[in-house]
Design a protein around this nucleic acid. Structure first.
Lengths: 153, 153
DNA sequence: TTGTTATTGAGAATTATTATCATTTAAATC
DNA sequence: GATTTAAATGATAATAATTCTCAATAACAA
């Protein structure tokens, strides 16, 4: 019987095939990680994940692979902290991100009404719209507690 | 009689004062540039602008100043290309950006309906919302022409 | 003014990203 | 299954971007 992990790898492999992307172990494991993780990982996190899960990979391959997936609209980049470090997220169901400016935790909100603005954007700019992204910045519940405690002391 | 340029510098100086930010020539000229330019400049462009307009500045100061302005919500960062290079924009009137994935040109759309999603974000996540940003990706009219021409030949 | 404190800037140090290219591998074809 | 071919991988070099350091300078409150 197949484990959960093996199943996810198969699903990722199918995804690659249906997008006509050559199927390598590195690509499979990176995609499956992005499909199942809710961590919105950074390049560094992805690199470490692949290595600690028994696959060989180089940093160059992680960069190349992520770029490839972005170009195929399989994943999106999120500008999470102000240093311009990118985080990555599998993007099938439209959703947006709420990002903590203190600890950089990212949570998903599965609501696609923000996408409706695309029509107006087309009309106003003449751009041929490909996709759009909405990001909300704030302070997560955990950090709110910490900050409030600090102030009251 | 004051020139337009001098006026903008004064407006920027007032903005700094009202935000309790110490008023230095570098900060004044960087803020005034962002207030009047529609170029959504990069770090590099800002650095060059300041130097070619008769002010001394170092790259370190540009980085520090932009970070300071972002922290004070005077300006926002825009992730324009997939390399994670940031562009900057004065942000007083809510608006969003439509970005060409081919040439990275950015245009503003002054419509704030996307901001309405913030309420739902609060309810769904418990985050204390500070601001939000909407970005639309597509192909600008100029690049559409170029691409269509290329295909038809 | 003067004193205090924050800012600036040149360059060093660090970190992130891209490029190179020999080796390996996927998968189409026989 | 073996062969072929084009593409992917990965170690490392090269480059670019960002942050750090700290002495000199400047802002501005008193």
């Amino acid at each position: 019987m197949a484990t959960q992990e093996q199943n996810t790898l198969l699903v990722a492999a199918n995804k690659l095939r249906s997008n006509k992307i050559k199927n390598t172990p590195q690509r499979q494991v990176i995609l499956s990680y992005l499909m199942t993780s809710h961590a919105h990982p950074s390049i560094e996190m992805i690199f470490k994940y692949v290595r600690t899960n028994g696959f060989s990979v180089s940093l160059a391959t992680v960069y190349n692979t992520l770029q490839l997936f972005v170009d195929h609209n399989l994943i999106i980049e999120i500008a999470a902290d102000s240093g311009g470090h990118m985080r990555y997220d599998y993007f099938e169901t439209p959703h947006y991100h709420v990002i903590c400016v203190n600890c950089n935790k990212i949570v998903d909100v599965f609501d696609d009404t923000y996408k409706e603005n695309e029509k107006l954007a087309t009309k106003k700019t003449g751009y041929r719209i490909l996709n759009s992204q909405y990001e909300v910045y704030g302070i997560c519940p955990d950090c709110q507690k910490k900050i409030d405690t600090k102030i009251s002391v």
